[in-house]
């Protein structure tokens, strides 16, 4: 009877603890992002991150990765990273086979800033500075937190 306690206990520990990952490298796939203190969207920012930054995955906790970046520990949401290395040079890797790998190898290729620049020259009637202005309009996170709390909304 006692012998069963250990496997059940181990099973409980494995079920309740976040998955531990072998030092896996993750790449940031958004233009800007942040390493968060806790695994929630609006928790304290420990470090700013940019597209292509490499993070060392420590463990997985639901939709979040616990990672290490330049010796700083923190969290990042799964939608902000890929498990494949982002090829910033745009050179396609010969080892790529799956669609996700191809997507990453094609980073910076296809419809890119060079294509946008040519498109802008062809369409001088379009005002991209207004698009830039829309993208630069940011809500400070502390304001968003107050807005969410005051409105009785859920803070993810």
């Amino acid at each position: 009877m006692e012998k069963k306690i250990f496997p059940i206990g181990l099973l409980l520990v494995l079920t309740l603890c976040p998955a531990v990952l072998h030092a896996e490298t993750l790449s940031v796939v958004t233009r800007e992002n942040a390493l968060r203190a806790d695994c929630s969207f609006l928790s304290t920012v420990k470090s700013k991150l940019n597209y292509g930054d490499q993070l060392e995955a420590v463990s997985k906790d639901g939709d979040w990765f616990k990672v290490r970046y330049k010796n700083i520990k923190g969290c990042i949401h799964k939608s902000a990273v890929t498990e494949q290395k982002v090829n910033l040079s745009g050179v396609k890797s010969s080892k790529s086979s799956s669609s996700s790998e191809q997507e990453v190898a094609l980073a910076g290729k296809g419809f890119n800033p060079q294509v946008e620049d040519s498109y802008k020259r062809k369409h001088s009637e379009l005002d991209f500075t207004k698009v830039d202005r829309i993208e630069k309009f940011k809500i400070p996170e502390d304001e968003l937190i107050i807005f969410i709390k005051n409105g009785g909304l859920d803070q993810p």
Binding site: S99, S100, E103, V104, G110, H123, L126, F128, K130, V131
Partner: peptide
Amino acid sequence: RPISDEEEYYVGRAVAAQIISSYPL
């Protein structure tokens, strides 16, 4: 092949510029 998020972003910017040309901000 899936369009990358980065390409989608550039497509979206041009679509936004087109919409603003018809509807003022």
